[in-house]
């Protein structure tokens, strides 16, 4: 098992959001977490990425408990996190942002390899490599955020709402690229508002409500589940 989350309790200050959240992802798996707004999906991601320290519980990554480790050390262990609000360096160029993504890689050649890889996935970024990130369009920024998250060649990729604010065509492009990554052997944990799409592309899913894991199963089963269909798909 690549990642095992055990009984996590987490929140902001005195406000507890996550209650006893447990789940796991195998090496090479493509899994998703779905749930209504405010369920705590992003909070879960932040906790794994080390931006939030859990009150209790364990997060085992590659056999090591990383709960409470600061974000920069988590990143060094090989967890890439693409956050909901992207956290780009707005006054840097596209290329500088991408290089920052490979901050933990020291060898120049390796960095450039990764850069080529990302530019191949998102040719649009290559065309705009000298533009300031802050002046890019919303969709372009999303691509840049994903690209930056890939630069360090993570073993586990946490992606929070990659399709948010994207036009259908761009969205397809993003999901295609995630598929390519999956084929390349990257383990992916996806959080997505577009439930139909999420359940289509992933193999396994967790449903989160009110800070708890409410349901889990194969994505195809979840897509057929009456509760999921009623709440998320409006059928």
């Amino acid at each position: 098992m690549l990642l095992e989350v055990k009984n996590i309790n987490a929140g902001y200050g005195f406000l507890q959001i996550l209650r006893d959240v447990s789940f796991n992802i195998d090496q090479g798996e493509y899994a998703c977490v779905i749930g209504p707004n405010g369920a705590g999906k992003s909070t879960t991601m932040k906790t794994i990425a080390g931006l939030l320290s859990p009150m209790s519980g364990e997060i085992i990554f590659n056999g090591k408990n990383i709960a409470g480790l600061p974000g920069n050390q988590v990143a060094r262990l090989g967890i890439g996190y693409i956050s909901e609000d992207m956290n780009l360096f707005t006054n840097m160029t596209v290329q500088e942002n991408l290089y920052m993504g490979a901050y933990v890689i020291k060898e120049k050649a390796l960095k450039n390899d990764r850069l080529d890889f990302v530019y191949n996935l998102f040719t649009r970024l290559k065309n705009r490599k000298d533009q300031l990130a802050g002046t890019m369009s919303g969709g372009e920024r999303k691509m840049l955020a994903i690209g930056r998250g890939l630069m360090a060649n993570p073993k586990l990729l946490l992606v929070d709402e990659p399709s948010f604010g994207l036009a259908p065509q761009l969205m397809e492009n993003v999901f295609d690229n995630l598929d390519i990554l999956k084929e390349a052997g990257v383990t992916i944990l996806l959080v997505e508002q577009n439930v139909t799409k999420a359940l289509q592309v992933t193999t396994r899913g967790y449903v989160m409500e009110n800070g708890k894991i409410f349901m889990k199963g194969l994505s195809s089963d979840l897509a057929d589940d009456p509760h999921v269909r009623k709440v998320f798909l409006g059928v």
């Binding site: 931006l51 974000g71 990143a75 780009l88 500088e96 920052m100 993504g101 901050y103």
Partner: peptide, 19 residues
């Protein structure tokens, strides 16, 4: 670059592994 990154977005800097 890391110094500039921290000045622009601390969370982002943390995410890419900057101490």
């Amino acid at each position: 670059r890391a110094i500039r990154a921290v000045s622009q977005d601390q969370t982002g800097a943390l995410m890419v592994g900057i101490n």
